[in-house]
Design a protein around this nucleic acid. Structure first.
Length: 388
RNA sequence: GGGUAGAUUCCGGAGCGGUCAAACGGGGCAGACUGUAAAUCUGCUGGCUAUGCCUUCGAAGGUUCGAAUCCUUCUCUGCCCA
């Protein structure tokens, strides 16, 4: 077992904010496994690299012999975390939440050690609360405290609504910390406020307050907004190796530095060629979620993209009933599970996106001769090979 | 409860009787350029059996040759007062 000082060094590495180092050290010095809490709301079934930052940190706790406590916010998800929101979240149905919770765990255990993780659903205690207990819980917190939150402040300043259930959210999340007797709570920097409420509630219950540990928020592929599914700037951890590789390759050089640091813990060599560094980064990430072989294959495919013959492409059988280009391309998109409207396809054709073996096909009404093995490019990401 | 402002296409936001599938910006997509990156430039961005046709401007009615624009009712939201 590593010394408390060594552990502190490892655990605080890469964090955005720890409140406070000295408190954490004191807890570590007790020599007992700490209970490290991470609360997640199963609002979206798929995890992406943005979520992985905090999960990686939790795994470090596990590796050092501490207890990971994963709280599935089946109850909180019904409220909807207002964090960073400029508007109220739509509520989720009970079924969706439970289904999401399943897939969430499945995916989280690609990172976490299942055997060293305690999983609890916060509905376990919240669904049992009586209304008078809810009122009592609310009595532990002041309105002024809640209104200090930046999101709420901004929304009020901008004349946007803040609903009362939303200001309950931090209180409810904070109460989780009391229920699981958390020693440390992990979260993104945007969770600072919520985690602090947990500290306060623990204090009012006579408990030793949890240490706050915030991890940086990972920017999405656009490099500006945080990675999120709704902004479609994410890399899902279950995505196929090729997709994952391609998405990483599309980020800017500046963003690459940050991804490397937060996702892999490596520095980018500024002297090396950025293209090579980016390929290496993409390969490392693919290796983590798939395998070294998959990463090699993805890299090889990437390098061969110019040489179409060597790349594996999905086969596509041209439809018998549509000979015109619009019909063919539409069928090709359908075969990939990405249906497009005729107007969309028409636009792609007219703009030169549709290419047969590298030749643009600009006429929507033409009836091109397709022969076996030719490559039909649909858009930047999708191409198919003619089959029968 | 009273007063008042508002609800427009993915988002923000013009339009206030015909020239509106609806300005402009953002986002997205495509092309050019590149390191098949970013930045930049250009174009596109409701649907269709497509030089025309169909369905859209919170919902339902109504006025009119003609409505996103006017009237009525309804639903939802902000702000002010209580």
């Amino acid at each position: 077992m590593k010394s408390p000082a060594e552990q502190l060094e490892i655990l605080t590495r890469g964090t955005a904010k720890v409140l406070s180092d000295s408190e954490l050290l004191k807890k570590l010095e007790k020599g007992e496994p700490l209970r490290a809490k991470l609360g997640v709301d199963p609002t979206s079934p798929d995890l992406h690299l943005g979520h992985s930052v905090v999960l990686e940190k939790l795994r470090q706790f596990q590796e050092l012999g501490h207890q990971a406590v994963l709280i599935i916010g089946d109850f909180t998800a019904q409220i909807g975390d207002p964090t960073g929101r400029s508007r109220t979240r739509p509520p989720l149905s009970r079924e969706d939440i439970l289904a999401n919770a399943e897939t969430y765990q499945e995916q989280a255990f690609r990172i976490l050690d299942r055997d060293k993780t305690e999983i609890v659903y916060n509905g376990t205690w919240f669904n049992k609360m009586t209304f008078s207990q809810v009122i009592q819980l609310n009595a532990r917190v002041t309105m002024q405290q809640m209104l200090q939150r930046e999101d709420f402040k901004n929304r009020i300043a901008n004349d946007q609504e803040v609903r009362l259930h939303e200001i309950q959210y931090p209180i409810v999340q904070g109460w989780d910390s009391v229920e699981v007797r958390a020693d440390v709570e992990l979260g993104g920097t945007d969770q600072l406020f919520n985690i602090l409420v947990g500290r306060d509630l623990q204090k009012t219950m006579g408990m030793e307050p949890q240490v706050v540990m915030c991890l940086p928020i990972l920017e999405g592929l656009d490099g500006v907004q945080k990675m999120s599914k709704s902004l479609n700037n994410y890399v899902g951890i279950t995505e196929p190796a090729g997709e994952m590789f391609g998405k990483i390759m599309s980020i800017s050089d500046e963003l690459m530095v940050r991804y490397s640091l937060l996702l892999i813990g490596d520095e980018i060599d500024p002297a090396a060629h950025p293209l090579e560094e980016k390929k290496a980064l993409a390969a490392k990430i693919v290796t983590r979620y798939h395998s070294a072989e998959a990463a090699e294959q993805a890299l090889a495919n990437w390098n061969n993209r110019g040489k179409l013959d060597e790349v594996e492409l999905p086969g596509f059988v041209p439809p018998a009933d549509r000979k015109d280009l619009i019909g063919i391309v539409q069928a090709a998109f359908d075969s990939l599970g990405e249906p497009k409207s005729g107007s969309d396809v028409r636009r792609l054709i007219q703009q030169g996106s549709i290419q047969l073996d590298g030749e643009k096909l600009p006429d929507p009404k033409s009836e091109p001769e397709l022969s076996l093995g030719q490559v039909l490019k649909l858009n930047k990401k999708r191409s198919v090979r003619i089959a029968n």
